[in-house]
Write a protein that binds this DNA or RNA. Structure first.
Lengths: 162, 162
DNA sequence: CTTGACTCTGTAGTCACTCAAGGGTTTCTA
DNA sequence: TAGAAACCCTTGAGTGACTACAGAGTCAAG
């Protein structure tokens, strides 16, 4: 099959597949006479695996490690466990951070129950105070905002028609 | 004060401050005879404000809006409220997503309680199955992994010494 | 006068894509 | 069979919020 069909099957877009190939996650496929990439079932399986891992928020580096283990069945899978445990740990940590964040944001929000002028806005006052949170630890877990792509999906969220 | 002192005060690094200036978040400061940036108290306050907002995971665009309201005290702060409410909503949404993620990861982890060879690793099997999650919605909230910078802080997390 | 700490500009790298330009190929339809 | 539409190709640039580095200049202390 050609790249478009593969993309439809996996629910990715075509550029992503080519990107994975460049990045070494997908093997270089055969080419047709007209220089089109031709994929078979193994590619489909591998792309599904990658997309599933991405759906679980793993990095491409983590996925690379998992793919390596898939390719080397003789190796012990304790490392797979470790990778997953660590990933779960980071997700849990990020959730705690987000909870703290939510608390702080709600605190802040309560400082301004109704519309007043910005000169007396408790929120802006609150934000002007010293930095409270300890900042990012080594959690490797992202903040509250999407990548460029996600933000494009979420566009319109800026609100003020400035 | 010079940029280094400002950076120490705010707990940022120097490049970040210059980046904010380029990006229009910090006003262009005066220069010394030797072409060094010279900052005063207003810059300190503004940088603190920015860093506090960043600590609350706002984007620079969101912060730009808030700074605008700070500079225009005559405007109504209902927009500030709206911005904050929306941000809180996105954080809450991302937390839900992470909870679902955690559940899936733990499910997966249970498939492999002990070290076996990768050929019979339930985790890899599980990952090979069809994509379950609906994928990212328009949450504008990031996944589980840090930016390059954070990942560098978190380095060593890869685990396998391959 | 030298050493070292600090600063400057400019550029490139991070992650995981996404988009666009400018072309070639294939397939469908008239 | 012509031409349009849909698909594919490569290359390069853009996203956010920084970080890192090269190569130079400035400044204070010894």
């Amino acid at each position: 099959m050609k790249i478009g069909e593969l993309a439809r099957l996996a629910g990715t877009n075509v550029e992503t597949i080519r990107y994975y190939e460049r990045d070494g996650l997908l093997p270089v496929p055969a080419r047709s006479e007209g220089n089109y990439r031709i994929y078979g079932e193994p590619h489909v399986q591998r792309l599904f695996f990658i997309r599933r891992c991405r759906g679980l928020d793993m990095t491409l580096d983590e996925i690379r490690v998992l793919l390596h283990f898939k390719e080397s069945p003789q190796e012990n899978c304790a490392d797979v466990n470790r990778l997953l445990d660590r990933h779960i740990g980071h997700v849990a940590q990020r959730m705690q951070e987000l909870q703290e964040l939510e608390r702080q944001l709600k605190d802040l929000r309560e400082r301004c129950g109704e519309a007043r002028d910005a000169a007396h806005c408790g929120i802006l006052d609150g934000l002007s105070q010293a930095i409270v949170s300890g900042g990012k630890t080594a959690s490797h877990v992202l903040g509250s905002h999407g990548h460029a792509a996600n933000r494009r999906l979420a566009k319109g969220y800026q609100g003020n028609q400035g």
